[in-house]
């Protein structure tokens, strides 16, 4: 069934159509929230909350934008809220080692691929830490725009639509984000 037909069926109360609709988009939603928040627990919460909001408000979806834009708007707002809360917490707690927990769960995969080559593994870990540090230096909006453009491959016009702003504002945000990232990683690469 095509997406529009699934949406209409789900709006009429067909839960299996809703489930199919979720499966069309949920891998991207989870990837987006996991990469933005760097924590499986937070990504899990955003996934649940985003799709529950979609379920509760699907009747109000009127096809005046794409379903993906509507869904990503919800996910983006939830992730921005999380990032802002974290920023406030970090400022309150000053210099604690927050943020390291999320990475540890993924060590297995990265290390497994580099097994048998300690130098490569060390470099990979150092680079990962530097990138993590550089991402943490971005504001929540810069982080979101960078993630949507670099990792999700969305055009700046679509990002602007999604965030309720102009393409130009999204472009400036991306420009600031890449500048900060380059400054943070410049001597390492």
């Amino acid at each position: 069934m095509e997406e529009a037909a699934l949406i209409r069926a789900a709006q009429a109360g067909d839960d299996s159509a809703f489930e199919e609709l979720v499966h069309l988009h949920d891998q991207n939603v989870l990837r987006l929230s996991l990469n933005l928040l760097r924590s499986p627990e937070d990504a899990y919460d955003v996934y649940q909350e985003a799709f529950l909001r979609v379920y509760r408000n699907l009747d109000q979806f009127r096809f005046d934008c794409s379903f993906q834009t509507w869904l990503y708007r919800i996910v983006s707002n939830l992730c921005l809220d999380q990032l802002r809360k974290r920023k406030v917490r970090r400022e309150e707690q000053s210099h604690t080692a927050e943020g390291a927990g999320g990475w540890d769960r993924f060590d297995g995969l990265a290390e497994e691929r580099a097994e048998g080559d300690p130098q490569r593994r060390l470099l990979s870990l150092q680079l990962r830490d530097r990138i993590e540090g550089a991402l943490a230096g971005l504001t929540p909006r810069e982080r979101l725009v960078f993630e949507l453009r670099h990792y999700q491959g969305l055009r700046l016009r679509a990002i602007g639509d999604q965030l309720g702003t102009t393409e130009e504002a999204a472009k400036n945000c991306l420009f600031r984000a890449t500048g900060k990232m380059r400054a943070a990683l410049g001597d390492f690469l």
Binding site: H23, D26, L34, A43, Y47, I131, L189
Partner: peptide, 24 residues
């Protein structure tokens, strides 16, 4: 620099996705 950033992308583990779907 772009390629290095690409390598830092996280892919959600299959078990995480399955858990999310089940709970939802």
């Amino acid at each position: 620099w772009h390629r290095a950033l690409d390598r830092a992308a996280l892919t959600p583990p299959a078990a995480l996705l399955a858990g999310c779907r089940q709970e939802l």
